[in-house]
Amino acid sequence: MFDLKSYLKIHRQRVNASLHSYLGTGDSDVSRVTQAMSYSVMAGGKRLRPILCIAGAQAVEGDQEAVTALACALEMIHTYSLIHDDLPAMDDDEKRRGKATCHVRFDEATALLAGDALLTLAFKILATTASQFPAAEHLNWLNVIAKIASASGFRGMIEGQMRDMASEGKIISIEDLEILHGLKTGKLIEASVVSGATIAGATEIQLQALSAYAVHIGLAFQVADDILNVTGDPERLGKNTGTDQARGKNTYPSLIGLEPAQRLADRLVDKALNALDDFDKKADPLRAIARYIVERNR
């Protein structure tokens, strides 16, 4: 039986070691912005996106070592989005991953610049890594870089955040909520899975199946997050609960109720697993992660 706990531990350690090599320790002998970058990236977290990237490569029998840099870049982009999301101009959160948010630990200007620096460093890593591969593989890397840029940009994560802020205090349809979360959360999750597989040499048919898997788990992840914001333990989550309701945010529990939201998450996981029907046991990490997404308590 596949041991997800050990798999996550091994690959979190692997990703953390690589992130540390890119960012250093954040000690006093480096600049303030570098300290803020390291503080936020190394504060913990599930490392879901980089691990999905690695698992996507593994599902198509790719070299996992080749995707480590890609995985780290994805985590940097994700962390940049969290730093900005926590700012007073947006969600004004004071706690993230059990620690003070970046702007609380440092200041707003430093947090803003740390987020910007992580985003630009991520694309430097992607470009530098791509240049180390043979010319025949450059097109794959260019496609990956474009996909990640699109997923994190104004037609992806940023548009989702904009819609999230604009809809506070209003009631939107369940269809609009699905679009919002598909942009804000789902696009980067999809890019993580598909990018890892692309670099590993996946076929177009495999990429289509992995994309379908990722779209379903991306939405399931957000539904589960909405549920945890109502029912979760703040100590386990590392952040406050009840904040969605306090801010007047649209969530699946608020629009359809807690139990229907849980059933929706389960159906989405079933659809994700169905998308992997033609993959062998090498996709077991992806299957286990799909289940973990709706069963987690943090």
Rank of each mutant, 00 (worst) to 15 (best):
I189A: 12
A146P: 01
T120I: 13
H78A: 12
T110N: 06
T25S: 15
T34S: 14
V104A: 06
E190T: 15
R105Y: 06
M42L: 15
M165K: 11
K147Y: 04
Q58A: 10
A17S: 10
A202H: 12
D280K: 04
Q58S: 13
P50V: 03
A117F: 12
D164Q: 11
I148T: 12
G169F: 05
G98N: 03
A275V: 05
I158E: 12
F221Y: 15
G115Q: 06
E108T: 13
L237K: 10
S173N: 12
A71G: 10
A69L: 02
L70T: 11
N274A: 15
T251Y: 02
Q64M: 13
L19D: 02
T241H: 01
L126F: 05
R163L: 15
D63E: 14
D86K: 06
A246C: 00
F123L: 08
D92L: 07
K282P: 00
E295C: 03
A290M: 03
M162L: 06
L183W: 02
G62M: 06
A288K: 06
Y213I: 01
A214E: 00
A117H: 07
T243H: 03
K147R: 13
T25I: 00
K9I: 04
D244I: 08
D86R: 07
V67H: 05
Q35G: 07
I293G: 05
L276T: 09
D85S: 10
D233A: 04
A220S: 12
F221M: 11
I145D: 01
T128I: 09
N297I: 01
A55E: 05
G56H: 14
Q64A: 03
R296E: 08
V67N: 07
A127V: 11
R105C: 04
D270V: 13
D107H: 02
T241K: 07
D277A: 13
L19C: 05
V41R: 02
L219V: 11
L255K: 00
V194D: 03
Q262D: 02
E108M: 02
D266I: 02
V104E: 09
D278L: 10
D3T: 00
T101P: 12
I51S: 03
T198Q: 14
A290I: 02
V33W: 11
A151W: 06
T203H: 13
S150N: 06
G186W: 01
S131F: 04
G56D: 01
V104M: 09
Y7V: 08
I125S: 03
A149I: 05
D226Q: 12
V144A: 07
E295Y: 04
D280C: 03
C72I: 09
E94G: 01
A200M: 14
G24A: 08
L183G: 09
E235K: 08
L126H: 05
S31Q: 09
L87T: 09
S211Q: 15
S195C: 15
R263L: 12
A283M: 04
C72F: 10
I174Y: 11
E295D: 13
R291L: 11
A17E: 15
L273D: 08
S167H: 09
L237D: 01
N274K: 14
A288V: 01
C72A: 09
D92A: 08
